[in-house]
Design a protein around this nucleic acid. Structure first.
Lengths: 145, 145
DNA sequence: AACGTTAGTTCGTACTACGAACTGTCGTCA
DNA sequence: TGACGACAGTTCGTAGTACGAACTAACGTT
């Protein structure tokens, strides 16, 4: 079915998958150091940009609302976030970080960034710049995040 | 703690994380189309290179042996793989793909590759080649896979 | 005031991942 | 040869993840 793909494409796709697993591994390790699951860490990091409703969170995280309820429950239970209510619409709830949650989010984010930076240190600065541009280009091609 | 990182490093790390989530999303979608969980799909893809013992699988997949037992159980239960026994060492077991498992592994692998190829189509061929080289370099810097 | 839509929660199911405890096998060394 | 530590896997209990279906409550419209 896909036998007509040039070899380099296949190899590149494989590299992307392996890189992805590597990054996920780093993400999980750092999250664990802060006593968070990767999903909880990702949630906190998303909320660093400001409070969001459940529906928006579901879109950003690619999660069904039923999956999100429990995830938010667990971070709320740990006092890392709160469920506020919307000013006018009493159906929607705004999930915001607590101070503790914000601190943890920043710590985790910084930890992951630092870890990835050591990985990237192998790459010459010029390549890093190019890589950044290419990734930005790739990510822009999809739905924005 | 990490405030001295150049801005571009931070942005690059962020891009890496977002790319990683994107790839994981593709991986999960394609796996689901084939009625597999991402973990099961990854296991089958690893086994495409030949049978492996549980310990080696754990190393490759970064899983504790207790986690692996269940994962292998489920693909064996679905007749996608079998637990053979080592010729001389009766402790170790060799996990191999069945014909059905091999077919599913190839289908999933091809599907993911095709999906990623459409993503990469946005990128000019020259950049793709460079990107491949850079990723290979990055992946080589870590433990091989 | 009735009704369809939207926002979230709850429930049941299956899977993932871990550590601790356990069984069976292997290799060694006395 | 027999005891013993190391190794390979499994089992068990716990917590978290993710989904769809069914549900409740509030909103907006007509």
């Amino acid at each position: 079915m896909t036998k007509t793909l040039p070899i380099t494409e296949i190899e590149l796709a494989g590299s992307l998958v392996r890189l992805s697993h590597l990054v996920q591994h780093v993400f999980a390790d750092v999250s664990r150091q802060h006593d968070l699951t990767p999903q909880q860490a990702q949630l906190l990091c998303v909320l660093m940009n400001g409070p969001l409703g459940m529906s928006e969170l579901g879109r950003v995280l690619h999660l069904e609302k039923s999956s999100l309820s429990g995830l938010v429950d667990r971070v709320v239970r740990r006092a890392l976030a709160t469920r506020g209510q919307h000013r006018t619409d009493r159906r929607t709830s705004q999930v915001s970080l607590t101070d503790e949650g914000r601190a943890l989010a920043h710590a985790t984010h910084d930890g992951i960034t630092a870890e990835l930076a050591t990985l990237l240190a192998d790459l010459p600065p010029a390549n890093r710049t190019r890589l950044g541009a290419d990734l930005t280009h790739l990510l822009a091609g999809t739905h924005l995040a």
